[in-house]
Amino acid sequence: MAHQTLFDSDEPEAPTNRPAATGRIREWVSRPYARAILILTVVIGFVLLPLAWLILAAMNQTGAPASPIMEEIEKTVFWFTIVSIPMTAFVFAVLVYSLLGWKRISSDDPPMQESPAIRTNRTGTIMWTVVSSVLAFFLVVWGMIELAAITANSYGTIPADQQPGDEQPLIVNVTGQQWVWTFEYPGYDGATTPVLYLEKDRPVYFNVTSKDVIHNFWAVELGVKIDANPGAATQTGVTPTKAGVFNVRCAELCGLHHAYMETTIEVLPKEVFAAAMREMGGGKTS
């Protein structure tokens, strides 16, 4: 037992003062329980680590990420998972060790034995405060930077006539009503479609509104989500970077057939998109 050495009165070198920080940490790590908890933390951390990829795998099942916004979202989710694993692993390690490592009594009567009266621990509390503050600070800074990035990527702050890109951006007026989505293309003679057609690599700008109650326009694999409010228009945008068929779902309870208020997105190459638009009655390109 490590206790024995600590109580041992004829240590070769008794500490002459409060030991230096490195010495105190070394002493702490030399305690068997501390070592065990640290090892447990590492083990649990590595067990949890695959979650970072499994979460992304679950998110990518239907073809995400299909836009830079979705890539930013997935990057955020990935790093938040990584960052939260050590703290979680440490707490779980303490839970496990306090049941299996330290002493345990399961008698019917209250135990006679008392535990060490640790009322506080300056190093421990300071470390916890610093680490949790640093983590929270990291989350905030990361969140602010990413929020600015996706705001720029969704053209939320840029007026519609100054959109980026070589050509005119695609403008789509999205209207939710119980319980269908309608997509109108003002640049194509106001053609309307029940399925959202987008052109690959061409920025698209959404004006979203609702005819009746609040809906939520969620283009799942594109990472676009914004409420469709009655009596107000909300703006967002995205650049689809992957051709394919994706999902639009309503993410705000909107009554009877809320569950069925879904449609598909078809992200098409340039020529195919133009052909599709012509077919929908939008003869004029741009």
């Binding site: 990413e146 929020l147 996706i150 993410a251």
Partner: peptide, 14 residues
């Protein structure tokens, strides 16, 4: 913490 983050919430909200 995912939900508190606006970009991630853009996927998870609702």
């Amino acid at each position: 913490i995912y939900l508190s983050d606006v970009p991630a919430d853009q996927f998870f909200h609702g």
